[in-house]
Structure formats: C-alpha cells, structure tokens
Simulated assay, not measured.
Amino acid sequence: MHEEPLLKVRNLQKQFGDGCSRCKERQNLEKNYCPNCGTVYACQDISFDLFAGEILGIVGESGSGKSTMMQCLYFDAEVTSGAAYIDAGPGSAEQNVFELSSQQKRYIRNHQYGMVYQNPVHGLKMNFSSVGNIAEKLIAAGKRNVSEMEETSKNLLQNVHIPLFRMKEEPRNFSGGMQQRVQIAKALSNNPPILFLDEVTTGLDLSVQANVLDLIKRIQRELGISMIVVSHDLAVIRMLADRTIVMLNGSIIEEGLTDQILEDPQHAYTQQLVYSLL
C-alpha cells in the first residue's frame, strides 16, 4: 500500500505586488523581481509532500522564498494561490486549508501545527514566564485544568533541558539557545503531528547550535513528529533532513534524498552550495 502524505502542498504562489503585463508570464524578471512594476514573486509553483515521521529540509540563500513559504503554510501570510491538504482524519485530506475560515485555520495552528521561529520574539511572549508561554498554547488548544497544564509544562521544559527552578522566569532573561528551547517546548505542547522550524540555529554559537540540533533530532526520534526545517545552512540540513528541497529565486530547483543531493548535486546552484560545505 502506498503511504499517503501527511501534508500535500500544490502550486503554492506568493507574490508581493499586482504584477504587470511584462511580468505576468514570468518573462522579463530579474531573478524573481519585476524591474518594471516592482512585483516580487516570492514563491513560484511550490509543490511537495511531507510524510509521517519525516524531516524535510528546505535550503536556499536569503531571499529564495523558503521562509515566505513557511509563513504561508503556518497562516502567518496569505497565499496568492495554491493548495495545501492535511491528512488529519476522515474527510480532512480533501480540504484546501488555504480556503478555510480564520477560525478553522486557528484550529489547525493550535492542534495540527507547531512553529519555532528564527527569532524567539515571534514565538514567545518575553514578559510571560516559560510555564505561562506553554500554558498559553495549551489554553488555545482547549485545555482548562491548571494543575494538568503545569504538569505538562514541567515535563516539556525538562525534556528540552530547561532547569525547573527557572520555569517561572521570563524568557527575556534567558540566553538565545535557552529561548529557542522554550520555543520548542511551547511548539510541542499540543502534540502536533507537524512541526515547522524556521532557521532555528541562526545567530547561535556553534556549541549551542549543536545542542539545539541534537534536541530536535531526539524529539523527532522519540515522538515521530513530521518536521519541515528551513535553513540557509546545508550543514544543519545534512544533520537533520531525510529529504531535501533546494530553492532559488522562489522556485524549487532540485529535490531528493539528502544524501543523494549532497553526494551528487545536479543543479549548478546546488553544486555551489555543496562544494562550499566541503
């Protein structure tokens, strides 16, 4: 039996600007920018599948559209067109999630998805305690029992190696690596089948990066969560991802098993990325 994807993305388009007669056909573009009307085609016809228990890496330089794509999937940004389907029970796999009501999208964010942002300020309330941050996500997912929420929060914080004597502290007092770990705990609190990680190690010291990556790998192994990991750093993708998509100027230019892409890159841009890693 062929395994159905957990998440299917089809022809995702995101543009900033209305486009003009010169760029509507995607002719006369400089990379993915129209010099005539200023429209940016941030994501162009992005299609891929994410399977249960898989880590999918998305790599590309700054401006390649990978973070914009992530924002569209997490409903932080509206898509221009396209479809995404989540297999979350009977009948759900036929619904294009981009066309759902804001209430239904909120439900998916609170129950199906977890998100770890590059900048912890976007994922955490810096003036709430760490426990309060996790409780906020649990309340959004419909939990009401205070002692249960506290117990869940403690378990999660221990799981990401935040000492419990600091659980009532605000994340703004924490180092960057600790803030990312609190963000990961918060993102996992609703047991999401899908976790998005956007440039989670950028700006962290190398030893801290290694700790965060080890943590992500361990969580994925223990909980079997599917993850989409966006990074401009091929070393991060090599460590985490089973399969990899390479993006350039808003388009997918190469995809395949991570080992395959690292050992035998086909596209000139991917070759450049891989050789810069050697």
Rank of each mutant, 00 (worst) to 15 (best):
G250R: 01
A141D: 02
V9A: 05
M247V: 10
G91N: 07
E61A: 14
V229T: 01
V212K: 00
L188M: 15
E4M: 08
Q71P: 07
A83E: 09
S47A: 08
M247R: 02
T80E: 09
R181P: 03
F16R: 08
L277F: 09
A88C: 10
L100K: 07
I55D: 00
Y85S: 06
N36Q: 15
E150M: 05
D214K: 02
R172I: 12
Y107S: 06
Q118R: 03
Q271R: 13
N96R: 12
E99V: 11
A141T: 04
N191V: 12
Y85I: 14
F51D: 03
S226T: 03
Q179A: 09
L50D: 00
G256W: 00
A135W: 03
S21T: 14
S64M: 02
F174Q: 12
G176T: 06
A235K: 13
E61R: 15
P90K: 12
H111L: 06
L29W: 07
K125R: 15
V208N: 02
I253E: 02
T68V: 08
S207M: 09
L124C: 11
G142P: 07
V116T: 04
Y74L: 05
Q104E: 09
G123D: 01
A77P: 03
E94S: 15
M149L: 08
Q272G: 14
Q71I: 09
F51Q: 06
S130F: 01
D233C: 09
V146H: 12
A135C: 12
G38Y: 12
S21G: 13
Y269S: 08
S67Y: 03
T39I: 09
E54S: 05
L223G: 04
V116Q: 01
L157E: 00
Q103K: 15
L213V: 01
K31G: 13
Q209S: 09
A140D: 06
L188R: 03
Q27Y: 11
F174Y: 15
D259E: 14
Q71F: 08
Y74D: 03
I228Q: 00
S64R: 00
I228A: 01
R106S: 11
L240F: 05
Y269I: 10
Q220F: 06
G38E: 13
N191T: 10
V229G: 01
L188V: 11
L215P: 01
Q266T: 15
F48C: 02
S67C: 11
N96Y: 13
R166E: 11
N110K: 07
V236H: 00
S47D: 03
D214N: 07
P120V: 12
V160P: 00
L156M: 04
M178T: 04
C72Q: 06
R144K: 12
L278H: 12
L240I: 05
G132V: 02
T270M: 06
Q260C: 07
L138H: 05
N119E: 10
C72E: 05
A77E: 10
S231T: 09
Q180T: 05
F174R: 14
Q27N: 13
L213F: 01
L257V: 04
T39F: 04
E169G: 07
I253M: 05
N32E: 11
R221Q: 09
Y74T: 08
R172Y: 14
M115T: 01
V97W: 02
I58H: 01
M247Y: 03
A241F: 04
R144Y: 09
D242H: 08
G250V: 04
I139V: 15
